[in-house]
Amino acid sequence: MSLTPPVAGPIADAWLVIPLFNEATVIGEVIAGARETFPHIVCVDDASTDGSGRAAREAGAVVVTHPFNLGQGAALQTGIDYVLRATDAQYVVTFDADGQHRVEDAAAMVERAREEEAAIVFGSRFLDGRTKPGLLRRIILKGAVWITNQQTGLRLSDAHNGLRVIRRDAAEHLDLEQNRMAHATEIVLQLARTRLPWVEHPVLIVYTDYSRAKGQSLMNSINILIDTIVK
């Protein structure tokens, strides 16, 4: 992939926020791979029952453990709160636990935020043709993009992408109340309200059999839609 220039050295002023729920088989590997570039990682263990939290801690991440399962949106907010309260990091990078995001994309997005003084960098899998989501998934994702754009007034090409870089001043505006999956629209909405400069950055989503099986089903996208409309 020649699109992303190699980034020299670890990125010390950014924290990776990884919501974690029952990903024990992959989380260790994901964190170990990410730590070469991002030495600071906070994993929010959303009351996993398969030892994911221990695996994450052994791989070298800070682990914040929810006392019971709250949902991915809640885990994301907890991770962001941790970074804001316990560190003086400039950037929060939201990252998925299942290994579908690439560390080099995240690093390139932080660089881009720095260079272009963007407060928010949204990852988008639709800016180029590299990501192959399959027809049904593409239709659902494009529908989600359309709804998000209607609600937020932004013109994004991808909405439900978990890879984002959020500068500290923008992150301080976040107060996610959608505990489950509808947070993806809510986070865009709240970031749009900050009126801070944002850009989209092309990323490659690595669809493995694992992430496909874990991914959002068609039925759940109906839940997300209703959660988004009925607050």
Partner: peptide
């Protein structure tokens, strides 16, 4: 729940297996 989780992680209670002394 978030408050509890963050308190545990930022100031680990003595003897707690939660939130290593990272």
């Amino acid at each position: 729940a978030r408050h509890i989780a963050l308190s545990d992680a930022i100031r680990p209670r003595p003897g707690s297996t939660n939130g290593s002394a990272h």
